[in-house]
């Protein structure tokens, strides 16, 4: 199963929520739509899940959706059935399909083992942690072999140290079950870690849709680049000061060149064009602020030996 979103727009009371959204999701692909809160990510997800209708455009599924192969959305707060145990929550979809009790038990048990929920089988949702609730919600969705799985802010209710682990878990689960998955989130790192492709939803429109590396290092606009993280804007007149930055064959441009802090490399040089103005320890890397004329450039480096005031040269390295 694959799906295509074509020119989807939605308005509420004369207020445009999303406009002209188009992208494809291939079979076995995990796609993340990222954007700030309130940009219309959940509206888009509801349209894909057929819980809402677009004003214009449509969502095309390669195979018709059916009760056997539905689109399932896992909501931000999981929406587990509070009066059912974990086991009953997970088996709900199979019961709804009138499957035999023995088959349900077998499948549910397998799912509980895969999602590491065997010990919680008889517990109620109110007794679970956020991470466990999420696993129950995904297990409940996966057990019915959905045509498409939609995840609404899958990391919103998780502790910071649990987010990346969950992203990896979602990735491996998605690969294991081979179900096309769309996740909407504003957690960038996790989206980068688990997605095959990422869409950037800004100003009601999908600004860029590409692989995580491409979106991050070759953002289509300054706005997209800045949304995804710190970026240096290098003006044309400074480019000659950055070693290896100019392709002699490339035509001159008025637009500044964008370079991520991790794409800038420093070398100490008494005659260097830049001077280290500031230095901040940030755990697994050090953030340097390098002044060239009136501009300040941010550089991430794992090398902590540069001192404030030292003269340095900067070089742009391709990712």
């Amino acid at each position: 199963m694959d799906l295509a979103v074509r020119s989807v727009s939605k308005r509420y009371k004369n207020h445009t929520i999303i406009e002209d959204i188009s992208f494809d999701v291939g079979p076995r692909e995990l796609v993340s739509i990222v954007g700030p809160s309130g940009v219309g990510k959940t509206t888009l997800l509801k349209i894909i899940a057929c819980l809402d209708t677009p004003d214009t455009g449509r969502v095309i599924y390669s195979e018709p959706l059916s009760k056997k192969h539905p689109v399932i959305i896992v909501f931000q707060d999981y929406v587990l059935f509070p009066s059912m145990t974990v086991k009953d929550n997970v088996g709900f979809g199979l019961k709804a399909r009138h499957m035999k009790k023995k088959q349900i038990t077998e499948q549910v048990d397998r799912m509980l083992v895969y999602f590491q929920l065997t010990r919680q089988a008889e517990q109620y949702p109110a007794q679970l942690s956020a991470g466990q609730k999420q696993r129950v919600a995904i297990a409940r969705a996966m057990i019915v072999n959905p045509a498409v799985l939609l995840l609404d802010e899958p990391f919103a209710n998780l502790d910071r140290n649990l987010k990346m682990e969950t992203a990896r878990f979602i990735r491996s689960t998605q690969q294991e079950f081979g179900i096309p998955t769309i996740s909407v989130t504003h957690d960038l790192e996790e989206a980068f870690a688990m997605s095959d492709r990422i869409g950037i939803l800004l100003d009601k429109r999908l600004q860029q849709f590409d692989t995580p590396r491409q979106v991050y290092f070759n953002s289509v606009s300054r706005k997209v680049a800045q949304f995804l993280g710190p970026v240096n804007l290098i003006p044309e007149q400074h480019l000659s000061l950055f070693q290896g930055s100019r392709d002699p064959a490339a035509p001159a441009s008025d637009k500044p060149v964008m370079a991520r802090p991790e794409n800038l490399v420093m070398t100490e040089d008494a005659n260097g064009s830049g001077r280290i103005a500031d230095k901040t320890f940030a755990g697994h890397y050090t953030v340097y602020s390098v002044a060239i004329e009136s501009h300040a450039y941010t550089v991430y480096s794992q090398d902590d030996r540069f001192a404030v005031g030292a003269q340095v040269n900067l070089q742009i390295t391709p990712y």
């Binding site: 009760k67 056997k68 539905p70 399932i72 909501f75 929406v79 059935f81 979809g93 399909r97 019915v144």
Partner: peptide, 14 residues
């Protein structure tokens, strides 16, 4: 929460 009904319907419940 009406989403409980939506979720149950998506899971195939009548």
């Amino acid at each position: 929460d009406v989403r409980q009904i939506q979720t149950a319907a998506m899971l195939g419940a009548s």
